[in-house]
């Protein structure tokens, strides 16, 4: 369960950004999380209130975008949808692919009151 550590890192970033933007409260935090990031979205949601307690983001909404798993095939050049443990090209079946989405663990956007 490293999601608490991840949420604590998130809150530190949010506090820095809020301070730099002279915010009085943080309203909404948007994350992008892919299934291959190693972070579980339900666990992030459970850990978030613990990490946020007492911070400027204590009352913020956490909105998590689940990112799709997609690969680009180095052989045929096509992009296709994949699953977390089957990252092969859906078009030609080759395994020489590059993940282009699905391993994100990103703070994408913040909304705050000034």
């Amino acid at each position: 369960m490293h999601e608490l550590a991840i949420c604590q890192a998130l809150i530190e970033q949010v506090e820095d950004l809020a301070r730099d933007n002279h915010a009085v409260s943080v309203e909404t935090i948007w994350l992008q999380v892919g299934p291959l990031s190693g972070a579980e979205i339900p666990l992030l949601e459970h850990a978030y209130p613990l990490a946020a307690a007492g911070s400027i983001a204590e009352n913020a909404n956490l909105v998590i975008d689940t990112m799709p798993v997609r690969v680009h095939c180095k052989k045929c050049g096509e992009e296709s949808e994949a699953s977390t443990n089957r990252l092969i090209c859906a078009v030609c079946g080759d395994y020489h692919t590059k993940l282009i989405s699905g391993d994100e663990m990103v703070l994408s956007k913040l909304e705050f009151d000034k």
């Binding site: 892919g34 204590e58 913020a60 998590i64 975008d65 990112m67 282009i100 699905g102 663990m105």
Partner: peptide, 28 residues
Amino acid sequence: AALHSADKYHHDDHDHHHQHTHSHRHSP
């Protein structure tokens, strides 16, 4: 890959084709 795909799939107009999950707003 994360930031590359963020560029590709994230839209600020919130017209996401992927799934959202929302946590509850919790009281102080």
